[in-house]
């Protein structure tokens, strides 16, 4: 397929490369031209604006940091809506608030464009390996049409419901992973402060009811004290801010997520924002009188 891609960062670049590798023709544009270089070298075509990307491809994808960025590349000046023809499908794979996704989808619908929200889970390793989990909200027919594109980037693809539903699923994902990282960090810090070998504790627990991917992967990195991102703490904090804002709007209590969000605030305040989320272990150590035995 002819597909446009905007947002060639840590996640977007390998996703776009996987689209090329699967035989799709990829058209790219970026505010920062140097971020396009790896894609152009791999055979993607160079566009002068988001509008031009949409003129050349019937399907466009955005992978940017926040709702205002999505709005800018879709509905802003020289944006996708300015170049898109009838029946164009735009897929936003960024993580933004469900309400923002719905409002952008409505704005695009007025311009004759079908919008899908398709945020992902799996981090940079998943983006590189093409094994992302993709959660889709929006029109069922459009979702089916772009399935080959999703399959080039991910392995578990689920349509959750109408516009915004993909972002709701992503918010749920961030609640579970955020609280999960905090739980694993607390457990390993508690083990160390109690004089127990964290490596053995993790090993034992992996066989039991506390097993989780987070205990397995994040737990391992905590034990190795490998705090390189991965998924940066400030990004997880941003995602939890979206979640807490939605909970506020809906009148839904999320006490565990709220506690976790405060730990992320503490990490940002201590200058750990660029570390991986697993650096939460370091914060807990500071809150417990230093690194354990």
């Amino acid at each position: 397929m002819e597909v446009g891609f905007i947002g060639l960062g840590l996640m977007g670049r390998p996703m776009a490369l996987n689209l090329l590798a699967a035989g799709h023709r990829v058209h790219v544009w970026s505010r920062r031209r140097e971020s396009m270089r790896p894609l152009l070298d791999a055979g993607a075509s160079d566009c002068a604006s988001a509008a031009e990307v949409a003129r050349r491809a019937a399907v466009t994808i955005s992978m940017v940091s926040d709702a205002p960025d999505v709005e800018q590349v879709t509905l802003g000046a020289d944006g996708i809506a300015d170049g898109a023809g009838a029946g164009h499908v735009h897929i936003d794979m960024s993580t933004i608030a469900p309400a923002a996704a719905q409002s952008i989808a409505a704005g695009l619908a007025e311009r004759g464009i079908v919008a899908l929200d398709a945020p992902v889970s799996g981090g940079e390793p998943g983006a590189i390996a093409g094994t992302l989990t993709i959660m889709v909200g929006g029109d069922e027919g459009a979702c089916a049409r772009v399935q080959p594109l999703f399959e080039a980037m991910g392995k578990s693809i689920t349509r959750i419901g109408e516009a915004g539903a993909g972002q709701v699923a992503k918010a749920c994902n961030q609640i579970i992973t955020g609280v999960g990282v905090a739980a694993v960090a607390e457990a390993l810090n508690f083990a160390a402060r109690s004089g127990a070998d964290g490596t053995k504790v993790r090993e034992a627990l992996l066989g039991g009811f506390a097993y989780s991917r987070i205990l397995e992967n994040h737990g391992q990195r905590m034990l190795e004290r490998n705090f390189r991102p991965g998924f940066k703490a400030w990004m997880h904090q941003k995602d939890l801010r979206i979640v807490m804002g939605e909970a506020h709007r809906l009148g839904v209590a999320l006490p565990a997520a709220a506690a976790t969000a405060q730990l992320f605030n503490g990490m940002i305040g201590c200058g750990m924002g660029e570390d991986d989320s697993v650096a939460m272990l370091k914060l807990l150590e500071r809150m417990s009188g230093g690194v354990g035995a």
Binding site: Q237, R241, M244, A247, H248, L250, G251, V252, A253, L254, P255, A258, A259, A261, Q262, L263, N265, G266, M267, I268, G269, C270, G273
Partner: peptide, 23 residues
Amino acid sequence: AARLGAPLPVAAQVWQQLDALMG
């Protein structure tokens, strides 16, 4: 507080109780 990187654990819990009140 989130913007400034300031942890407010008690206020965060009170906020959730207020969310429940609104709900």
